[in-house]
Computed example of a mutant assay.
Amino acid sequence: MGGFSVQGFDLPAFVAATLAEDLGEGWPGGGRDVTSESVIPAEARFAGVMDSRDAIVVCGLPIAEAFFRSLDPDMEIALLCEEGQSVPPGTDLMRLSGNARAMLTAERAALNTVQHLSGIATMTRDYVRAMGETRAVLLDTRKTIPGLRHLEKYATRTGGAQNHRLGLWDAAMIKDNHVLVAGGVGEAVRRAKAAGVERIICEVDSIDQVEAALVAGANHLLLDNMSTDELRACVALVGGRAPCEASGGVRLDTIGAIAATGVDFVSVGRLTQSAPAADIGLDFTPL
């Protein structure tokens, strides 16, 4: 499965579980590709080409390779593009040849993965470009499909974003419900500080919450659903004492103006929540 590695992600386990799901392991009569077994001779061999039908940012090819190799370790596979490469429609991404049944059985899992991850990487690159010549950095969020977080965050990195929190463990993010229970922004931040949390992100939805959060010890402010005028005012008030992140309802047509307010970061949930799958196909030829 080559040298592909994403921290926290177990590629062999992902491949095994995905194929087991598709093959119906554990179901009565499951554990096999009934169509390929009944139609394709066991010794048949195919050549195949995976190509893009859209302009995309390539992401996930090493994972697709792992699906094919798990069913035919001797399959000949050539990855024709680098991860993160922008390619035009009609670009060949991968060539392969080997056992026909293995190719057909792994095809959907391989394509689903590359289509999904390339879709995320492509949308991410679009947002990065739309931010223009500002100093703001694009962040992703925890709005990921359960079980796919590490892969989806790999895809946003491939597209040019920076990962925000990987989970609930690597930073405190104090939001409105935490503030509600604690009795105020300052008290919520003080409690996190007293608990020894080093990285404290505090959401504020009005400028009058900013000073209380900073005085209590917040070292990152999430400016939630603010207008560009409100963002500029908050950035001026903070005066560099903590990074400022704009969040909430950010769209491709608004991110440029938001990034230009002087914020350090802009976070966008739709990168992982709403990215459309890239149009990628895989065509086979009998050998």
Rank of each mutant, 00 (worst) to 15 (best):
L222I: 15
G26C: 11
A20G: 10
L23N: 06
D10K: 08
L221S: 07
A44M: 13
L117H: 12
Q85F: 01
I258A: 03
I280A: 08
L282S: 08
G29W: 04
D283W: 08
V204E: 03
N225G: 13
T141K: 04
V185E: 10
R95Q: 13
T272V: 06
G281M: 09
V39N: 04
L104M: 14
A20H: 05
N225R: 12
A233Y: 07
A242Q: 11
T124Y: 01
D92F: 00
N163F: 01
S274I: 04
L111P: 12
E25C: 05
F14V: 05
A78N: 14
A260W: 02
A102H: 06
R53T: 10
A20Y: 04
T261D: 08
G147V: 09
S206R: 15
S274F: 04
A44N: 11
D224G: 09
R135W: 02
D140E: 09
G167F: 02
D72T: 09
H178P: 06
I40R: 03
Y154M: 02
V263I: 08
L151H: 12
L104W: 03
E133Q: 13
A192F: 00
W169T: 09
W169V: 04
D279C: 04
R199N: 12
D170A: 08
F265D: 03
R251L: 07
E230H: 08
I258H: 02
I280T: 14
L237M: 15
A242T: 12
G147K: 10
C59P: 05
Q7N: 11
A246L: 03
P62E: 11
G29A: 04
A275D: 11
G217Q: 10
I280R: 10
P276E: 14
M226D: 13
V114L: 02
G183F: 05
R241Y: 06
N219A: 08
E82T: 11
A161D: 09
L148T: 10
R190F: 00
A172Q: 02
T122D: 06
V49D: 08
P146R: 13
G186E: 15
A171I: 03
E245N: 07
G84D: 04
P243D: 08
P12L: 05
G147S: 10
S267I: 03
Q85K: 14
D33N: 12
S206I: 04
R135I: 00
H220D: 07
A17N: 13
V34E: 07
L61C: 08
G256D: 12
A121L: 04
C244Q: 10
E43H: 13
V179P: 00
A242E: 12
V250Y: 00
S267D: 09
R199G: 00
D208H: 15
I63V: 15
G196M: 00
V268C: 03
A130Q: 05
T156K: 01
G2Y: 10
H164A: 01
R135Q: 11
D229N: 14
V49Q: 12
A100S: 09
V87R: 04
L180E: 14
T144S: 06
D10P: 01
V215T: 15
D10S: 13
K175H: 11
A171G: 07
I77R: 02
S118Q: 08
M50R: 07
E203K: 05
Q7R: 14
A278P: 13
T134W: 00
D33R: 03
V215W: 02
A55F: 03
N112I: 03
A182G: 08
D264F: 00
A188D: 15
V34D: 06
P89C: 09
A216G: 06
